[in-house]
């Protein structure tokens, strides 16, 4: 699936912006029952689409806005198709089938290579009705916490 292409535009526009200037839109509040690993004291987050840069979105703490990370809807990543989320995790969220859930994958950049990687091993899984979720571990040795996003690009 082709998600994004290199921006070769020379017109004024996004290339003249910094990331902090990008407007966010279509936000929703979610709650991580166990907190976010690494930031366990934070439970309430806002997921906001980045205007003009969908499907990328921002996961931002509602209580500590300086804690934020970029994410992508897992439904867009071929490697996340048909992953098996442990039944216990779905029970905790009150979800019958994984197809009912919203799933997001946290992204990070390697400071040395500037490569974007995706933690497909540990997606954020939410019940879209309650907004409650957790970061769960997928027990599949083929899934990595540093999956190069370029593998999903054409």
């Amino acid at each position: 699936m082709s998600l994004i292409t290199e921006n070769t535009s020379t017109e004024s526009g996004p290339m003249n912006k910094t990331f902090e200037d990008l407007p966010l839109q279509t936000s929703k509040h979610v709650s991580l029952i166990q907190g976010l690993p690494g930031f366990e004291h934070l439970h309430t987050f806002i997921i906001a689409d980045i205007q003009d840069y969908a499907p990328f979105c921002v996961l931002k703490s509602a209580d500590q806005p300086e804690i934020s990370m970029l994410a992508i809807n897992a439904k867009l990543l071929a490697i996340c198709k048909d992953v098996i989320v442990p039944e216990r995790e779905l029970d905790i969220l009150g979800i019958q089938k994984i197809t009912e859930a919203d799933q997001y994958i946290i992204l990070k950049a390697d400071p040395r290579t500037q490569e974007i990687t995706a933690n497909v091993k540990a997606p954020l899984v939410f019940n879209p009705k309650s907004g409650m979720g957790n970061q769960v571990v997928i027990d599949d040795p083929h899934l990595s916490m540093e999956y190069p996003l370029k593998h999903e690009l054409s």
């Binding site: 994004i4 292409t5 990331f19 970029l70």
Partner: peptide
């Protein structure tokens, strides 16, 4: 950093 990388990309 990752956001600034995205600025070099264009959505299709």
């Amino acid at each position: 950093e990752i956001g600034n990388i995205l600025l070099g990309l264009k959505k299709v």
